[in-house]
Design a protein around this nucleic acid. Structure first.
Length: 553
RNA sequence: GGCCCCUUGGUCAAGCGGUUAAGACAUCGCCCUUUCACGGCGGAGACAUGGGUUCGAUUCCCGUAGGGGUCACCA
């Protein structure tokens, strides 16, 4: 009896690997095209780190006219979660990051290199496992989990390197006959890789991001097929990325130390090795300690946080790209209107260590992104956000014509306002411009310099009677406020006042402040002329009246 | 603990043997301005540490400290 008999006994129905090799031929792509992927496990809400990885993968594949595909790594049924794939697919979609090929819903996929869901590729993995067994490069192991655990404890107690290797690899040298006998006896087993490695030897590896790294060779006989017949990550990675013709494996750097194993697997199976790029995780400062952004502890770790807050997807992408390649920022400044895809992303320029997540910076990016929107765009996006997350704002925005006027204040010009960082800010930002909300609230009118009740009343009344005309242009409008100031004995010109402040009780700015506060109950607002234009005389009058009522209380 | 990786201002980061050590965010001041925002100008603020190598180290080598990753029939 020989390896072939053993292989046939274990996987009687597996196809020869030639079948798959032919079914999934080399891709016909231009020179230098990068084929890469995002390969998450459907285990819950999508993590920002995953989005980051996918974004980078897309950037490099787009740049080289390559392929970006989505593969679902669901070989661990225990950790799987309902609608896990939908979560991934819809998150990517929301960010405009749909794959060129791969899984596109729980059950559907596109592309010729599928299936793209590992759980339905069982036959393929088994064919390759069989191939390995035939050559004596893999073998059945009959250790129970308890036995393995016991072994590990022994190793730890003896302070030697834990694992299934060398003399500890109990079934590595079991004869084919004995193995066959055990299997026929119905003993449980899994399939292990017979590692040709030697821990004493070093391998050199060049990672695109991390640079040169030296590791000891792998000598662990790792499990390749689990008791449930599904492959482990390592084996699936080798088989899939070979068959899907991946040229660049872009993944989190928690995999870096598995590289010796992966390289060995590729070599032993006769596969061409892909290039690796290991991305540092996005970190968070936790009481002086750096740690990975955690979905449990940090809301901002979940991709859904951004849509809930109303931070535009493109802002998140720009921020992430910024962490990835700091030259992005300069490029963006120079090319404000270009698509992100046009940025020449450099994998090898990525930081070797993990960046701390900076919400303040993200919000700054977001402010810039939102400031570039037209009134129409910010209306549409705010409305869409409000429909999901804020019924009150949604109600306010139903009057589109009015909302467009509101959003149009100081927008669409060369120096647009940058006062909205996320759609959640919108309501607070505009609510005082809505009469029903405004009059329903009780306000404290915090006037600044001019506090005298009678003086304030006089200013408001006189302004409406003599100095406000709906048809005035901005210059005339402000000239009128100056005239009002003068009539009341205030300085018309702020500079003149500042030079000789003792000559006047105040200046035109103080008058403006009274008008502004009485009009909006706020000291800080965007351009008051535009606000008054939107309101018209009648509404201004109503608001002044309310201000006066409050004064008289 | 073994193995591997990392360490430039508060944060993200250029630089890769000779630089007044870029830039962005944040911060502070001034200017612009009827307020705020925007914008403009300016300030403060960094090469973890100790040894080498070198005419010269932030840049190269070694050690130390600190941080991160990894050691599953999880990915």
């Amino acid at each position: 009896m020989n390896y072939q008999d053993l292989a046939d006994l274990i996987f009687p129905d597996a196809k020869p690997i030639q079948y798959y090799e032919e079914k999934y031929p080399e891709r016909n792509l231009p020179e230098g095209a990068i084929v890469t992927r995002y390969a998450p496990s459907p285990t819950g809400r999508m993590h920002i780190g995953g989005l980051y990885q996918a974004l980078i993968a897309i950037a490099v594949s787009k740049k080289t006219n390559g392929v970006f595909f989505l593969r679902i790594e669901d070989t661990d049924q225990k950790r799987e979660v309902e609608n896990g794939i939908t979560e991934i697919v819809s998150s990517l979609q929301e960010f405009g990051m749909g794959p060129d090929e791969g899984q596109i819903s729980e059950t559907e996929e596109i592309g010729n290199y599928g299936p793209y869901k590992q759980s339905v590729r069982k036959d393929i993995y088994q064919a390759y496992a069989k191939y390995l067994i035939e050559q004596g490069k893999a073998y059945p192991c009959f250790c129970s989990p308890e036995e393995l655990e016991e072994m590990r404890q022994k190793q730890e107690a003896a302070k030697i390197r834990p694992g299934y290797y060398g003399v500890w690899a109990k079934y590595r040298n079991l004869s084919v006959e004995d193995a066959i006998q055990k299997i026929k006896n119905g003993e449980q087993y899994i399939i292990r890789f017979r590692s040709p490695g030697n821990e004493e030897r070093k391998i050199k590896h060049k990672d695109i991001i991390k640079g040169n790294v030296d590791f000891p060779e792998n000598d662990q006989d790792i499990v390749i097929i689990k008791a449930d017949g599904l492959p482990t990550y390592h084996f699936a990675h080798a088989v899939d990325d070979h068959l899907m013709r991946t040229t660049h494996v872009i993944r989190g750097d928690e995999w870096l130390s598995s590289v010796p194993l992966h390289l060995q697997l590729f070599q032993e199976m006769g596969f061409k090795t892909p290039k690796y790029a290991h991305i540092s995780p996005i970190m968070k400062n936790d009481n002086g300690n750096k740690r990975k952004l955690s979905k449990r502890k940090d809301p901002e770790a979940s991709v859904c946080y951004y849509s809930e807050e109303g931070i535009p997807p493109e802002a998140v992408k720009e921020y992430l790209l910024n962490i990835a390649n700091s030259t992005f920022e300069n490029w963006r400044r120079a090319n404000p209107d270009k698509e992100i895809d046009e940025f020449d992303f450099q994998l090898n320029k990525m930081s070797v260590s993990g960046a701390l997540f900076d919400m303040v910076k993200l919000l700054d990016v977001s402010k810039i992104v939102i400031s570039r929107y037209s009134a129409e765009e910010i209306y549409e996006k705010s409305f869409a956000w409000a429909q999901k997350y804020d019924p009150e704002l949604c109600e306010m925005l139903k009057d589109k014509e009015y909302a467009l006027k509101v959003f149009g204040i100081e927008r669409g010009n060369a120096k647009p306002r940058k006062d909205i960082a996320k759609f959640r800010d919108v309501k607070e930002n505009i609510i005082y411009l809505y009469d029903d909300k405004y009059f329903a609230q009780t306000h404290t009118y915090e006037y600044d310099k001019i506090q005298d009740k009678e003086e304030i009343k006089k200013i408001l009344q006189m302004y409406l009677e003599k100095y406000f005309h709906e048809t005035d242009d901005k210059q005339t409008w402000f000239e009128n406020i100056k005239n009002l100031a003068e009539e009341l004995g205030y300085a018309k010109d702020v500079k003149a006042y500042k030079q000789e402040p003792e000559k006047w009780p105040g200046h035109v700015g103080d008058i403006s402040t009274v008008l502004r506060v009485a009009l909006t109950a706020r000291r800080n607002t965007p351009d008051m002329y535009e606000i008054m234009q939107i309101f018209g005389k009648e509404r201004i009058e109503k608001r002044f009246q309310k201000a006066i009522e409050v004064l008289e209380k």
